[in-house]
C-alpha cells in the first residue's frame, strides 16, 4: 500500500480550479508521507482531460474510461473507482470536496471499509487532517487510525494550486468492468430554475443579510442601508430558504459567487458554504452580535453589536457622509 491517488472531476466539460487544489493537497501528502502522486479522471472520453492534468504537474495520470461513465452516477463512479483502488492499493485517496464527491465518496470509502475525512482545510505532520466543526466555530484535528487506504476530500480554496511541472506526466488508460444493470439511478441534464434578473456577480457594493435579522418584517432595516449605499441586497441561504428574498440573491456554494469592492454582512455567521461565495471581495465588513462568529475570521472590519442598533446608525452615518 503506497502512493497517493488524486481523483479529479470534469464538470460541464471542464476541469475547475478546485482540481488543482486537490492535486496540491495530494502533493503535500506526498511530501509528508513519501509516495508518488497519481491523478485519475473518469468519463467516457477522457483523453483531453488526461492530457491537461498531465501538463498541470501530475507525474502519472490514469484515465478511467467506460461508456457507462459518460454521465456521473454514484453507482458507476463507485464501482469503477473501487476497481482502480483495488488494483493500485494507494495509501491515500484525495478528492476535491464537490457536490459530486459528497454524493459518492462516502459510499466508496464504506465499500473499502474506510471513512472519508471530508472537507479538509489543512494537512499537517502525522498526517493530521484539519476540518471545521460547529459550522466553522471550531476546528478539529482528525487522524486515520485503522490500516488500509485513507480517504480525504479537500475544501475549495484551502490549498494553493501549484505551478505546472516542466515536463508533462505519463498518461495511461484503465477500463473498469461495468454493467448497465449495476447503475440504479437515472440522472437528468442539469437545468436552471429561472432567469436571473439581478447580476450580483458584477455588483460593486453588496449588503448581505443573514438569519440574525430574525423575521421577514425586519428586512426593510437592512434594505434602507443598502439603498443609502447604493448597494445590491444579497442574503445567506436560510433567508432564501424561507422565501424572504428570492433565491437569485443567495450568495454561496449553492448560490451566487460575488466579487464586490465592499461586501457588508449583517447577521451572517460565516459558514464555509457562504464564505466560498465571497472570496473575491475586496473588503469584507461584518456586523454580528457574537464576537466569535466565524465571519470575523475573514472580515477586514468588524462591529460586534446588535444589528438592530448598529444598522440604523450605519445608515445614518452613510447618509451624513454622502451629504
Amino acid at each position: 500500500m503506497s502512493g497517493i491517488l488524486v481523483v479529479l472531476e470534469v464538470r460541464a466539460g471542464k476541469l475547475g480550479a478546485i482540481n488543482w487544489e486537490a492535486l496540491a493537497a495530494g502533493q503535500k501528502l506526498a511530501r509528508l508521507t513519501g509516495g508518488a502522486v497519481t491523478a485519475a479522471v473518469l468519463g467516457a472520453a477522457t483523453e483531453a482531460a488526461g492530457a491537461e492534468i498531465a501538463a498541470k504537474g501530475a507525474a502519472r495520470v490514469v484515465r478511467v474510461e467506460h461508456n457507462l461513465l459518460e454521465r456521473y452516477t454514484s453507482d458507476g463512479f463507485t464501482a469503477a473507482l473501487k476497481q482502480l483502488i483495488d488494483k493500485e492499493q494507494p495509501a491515500y485517496v484525495v478528492f476535491p470536496h464537490t457536490y459530486q464527491v459528497r454524493d459518492f465518496a462516502p459510499a466508496l470509502a464504506t465499500r473499502c471499509g474506510q471513512v472519508l475525512i471530508g472537507d479538509v482545510i489543512a494537512i499537517g505532520d502525522g498526517p493530521v487532517f484539519t476540518r471545521q466543526l460547529m459550522q466553522g466555530k471550531l476546528s478539529g484535528d482528525y487522524k486515520h487510525a485503522g490500516g488500509g487506504t485513507c480517504f480525504v476530500s479537500v475544501q475549495a480554496g484551502a490549498f494553493r494550486a501549484g505551478e505546472a511541472g516542466a515536463v508533462a506526466g505519463s498518461v495511461e488508460a484503465f477500463v473498469p468492468e461495468l454493467d448497465a444493470a449495476q447503475i440504479r439511478t437515472k440522472p437528468g441534464e442539469p437545468f436552471r430554475e429561472s432567469k436571473q434578473t439581478v447580476d450580483l456577480g458584477s455588483a460593486p457594493l453588496i449588503v448581505s443579510v443573514g438569519r440574525g435579522i430574525k423575521e421577514a418584517d425586519n428586512l426593510p432595516l437592512v434594505e434602507a442601508l443598502a439603498s443609502a449605499l447604493g448597494a445590491e441586497m444579497a442574503a445567506s441561504r436560510p433567508i432564501c430558504d424561507a422565501g424572504w428574498l428570492p433565491m437569485e440573491r443567495q450568495v454561496g456554494s449553492s448560490g451566487q459567487t460575488v466579487a464586490p469592492k465592499l461586501y457588508l454582512a449583517v447577521g451572517i455567521s460565516g459558514a464555509i458554504q457562504h464564505l466560498v461565495g465571497i472570496k473575491g471581495s475586496q473588503c469584507v465588513v461584518a456586523i454580528n452580535k457574537d464576537p466569535e462568529a466565524p465571519i470575523f475570521e475573514v472580515a477586514d472590519y468588524g462591529i460586534v453589536g446588535d444589528l438592530f442598533e448598529v444598522v440604523p446608525a450605519l445608515t445614518e452615518a452613510v447618509k451624513a457622509a454622502k451629504g
Binding site: Q132, D141, K143, H144, E292, P294, F296, E297
Partner: peptide, 14 residues
C-alpha cells in the same frame, strides 16, 4: 477508523 484528536478555536485568516 477515523479519530478526532483535538479541537480548537480556528485560526484567523485576516
Amino acid at each position: 477508523v477515523v479519530t478526532l484528536n483535538q479541537i480548537a478555536q480556528p485560526k484567523k485568516q485576516k
